[in-house]
Amino acid sequence: LKTGDRVTIGSATFQIRSTVEAEPDKLAGGIGFGPRFLISEAGLRATGLIQPGSLVRWVYRVKLPDTANSERATDAFIADARNAAPQAGWEIRSRSNASPQLERNINRFTQFLTLVGLAALLVGGVGVANAVKSHIDRRLEVIAAFKAVGATGRDVFGIYLAQVLLLAGIGSVIGLALGAAMPFAIVGLFGKLLPLPVVPAVHADELALSFVYGLLTALAFGLWPLGRVHDVPVAALFRDTISSEWHRPRWSYVVFMAVVIALLIAVVIGLSFDKRIAAVFVASSVVVFALLRGIAALLMTIARRLPRTRL
């Protein structure tokens, strides 16, 4: 189409009077699937396209006075507009937020990554607890031998706690090394295919925080089976059946574990991008663990009271 041509839109015919070579703020209007056609509001209504049920989006552009060109003045104007018409359903854009839809998508993706990270943290913690318990089960005779030569329960606890922390530290360092190298590998292999320029870098603060997460998780989930080594009797050297007699750790270890769990929860919620989602996830996990524990206790109680079959 060129100047002077006539086009028919709906029930109205228009003549192209001129062309627009450049349009201010065109990027803020989103992706266009064709050339933009500018007509008056009266001409738009003459086309008959605006009917009940039609999808119409109105865009208003506001120019603030030169004395109110700061970000604070822009935020104040946006807040006033939302308060004046809370049910209007406006999507307000500014020079600092040209695409609210993109920002919402990024926020949703970040929330998804938050859930994935917390789920991985929980699954990893359960794995640590199972691994520590299995390790302690295989070392009952060694623990009893330590006590037979004079080691106290706290000495044995300290020995195996140091082992768990050492293994957790080694595993965390391996994970940090792989995570830090991943952006460089992706850019090296697929850098030319990425639509945006990506500059890989090593962020020491995030790596240190991840290391703290690893140690706290290992402590929070490993202290319960570790606390039981304090009361392993020397008789375990002579009776294999003693290995199945597990009881709750002493209160000092339970309190220590509670402090570590509280610290881990505080770090997880306090440093999460979306604190509300992190808090809901933590609360839901506690409820689920409590329910599973209660169901397991109920099933064991029912099994004890069932009549035993005679062979």
Rank of each mutant, 00 (worst) to 15 (best):
K2G: 15
K2N: 11
K2L: 12
T3N: 09
T13L: 00
Q15G: 12
R17Y: 06
T19K: 15
E23A: 14
E23K: 08
L27D: 15
G29H: 14
G32F: 11
F33G: 09
F33P: 01
G43M: 03
R45T: 05
A46Q: 08
A46H: 02
G48R: 00
P52K: 01
A73Y: 07
D75T: 07
F77G: 04
I78C: 11
A79C: 02
A88T: 02
A88M: 10
W90D: 12
R93N: 12
S94V: 04
S96M: 09
N97R: 15
R104Y: 14
N107D: 14
T114C: 02
V116Y: 07
G117N: 15
G117A: 13
L122Q: 12
V128E: 00
H135N: 13
E141S: 13
A144Q: 08
A148P: 02
D155W: 06
A162T: 10
G175K: 01
P183G: 05
F184K: 03
L189T: 11
L196F: 14
P197R: 07
V202A: 06
W224R: 05
D231N: 13
V232T: 13
V234R: 14
F238K: 12
S244A: 14
V259A: 09
V259E: 00
L264K: 07
I265M: 11
V268A: 15
S272D: 03
A278R: 06
V280C: 02
A283L: 14
F289G: 09
A296W: 04
L298V: 08
L299A: 12
M300H: 08
L306W: 03
